[in-house]
């Protein structure tokens, strides 16, 4: 219990420290013209992504409307409004993979991780995505984790594959 309290306050402390950092960055740029994109870069470095609250903070502190900040951040592919997870799992659902059991893999993955397609685990470790074809039809069905292509995956293999990444952490 006390551990939970500690982690919560640690999180809150980190949050405050992050906003303080961002305020400093905005300060640093205050004399210069047209620095919104540079500030957004810094914000994404600090927070990992650009949630609404952060964009609101940037808008308030730089004298913009949120809609302006959002119109800029959404123009550029580099900025993300959802946290990137540590590892991205992409299941191929091209024709070959689909027929060879890709669908079962998606279902099994959702079951194992307790999340839906396009969602992230609560610890932001994994997220599940669908791709149309990764050009590895001869190895179907394939699951791509970050850059690694796992070939001829059966639903029973999935737990082991996830473990490879979880295991590498400790």
């Amino acid at each position: 219990m006390s551990d939970v309290v500690k982690t919560l306050t640690a999180e809150e402390l980190e949050r405050r420290a992050n906003y303080e950092k961002l305020a400093n960055v905005i300060d640093l740029y205050s004399g210069k013209e047209g620095c919104l994109i540079q500030v957004l870069h810094a914000a994404q470095d600090i927070f990992g992504y650009l949630p609404y609250e952060v964009q609101q903070f940037v808008a308030d502190n730089m004298g913009f409307s949120v809609s302006h900040v959002s119109s800029v951040s959404s123009f550029y592919s580099f900025f993300s409004t959802t946290p990137k997870t540590k590892h991205e799992i992409k299941v191929c659902l091209g024709t070959a993979c689909y027929v060879r059991g890709g669908k079962a893999l998606v279902e099994k993955l959702q079951e194992l991780l307790g999340i839906g397609i396009g969602e992230a685990t609560s610890d932001n470790f994994f997220s599940i995505h669908i791709t149309r074809c990764v050009g590895a039809c001869g190895l179907a069905p394939v699951v791509v984790v970050d850059e690694d292509v796992h070939k001829q995956v059966k639903p029973g293999d999935l737990a082991g594959i996830l473990e490879q990444y979880r295991g590498a952490e400790v």
Binding site: G34, L36, I37, Q38, H41, V72, F78, F79
Partner: peptide, 22 residues
């Protein structure tokens, strides 16, 4: 620093981007 948009290589788009806009 840019932010991932090919069109920003075009000189007038590039200037918009330096100014902090789309």
């Amino acid at each position: 620093i840019g932010a991932g948009a090919f069109v920003c290589g075009e000189e007038t788009a590039l200037m918009e981007s330096i100014e902090g806009d789309r």
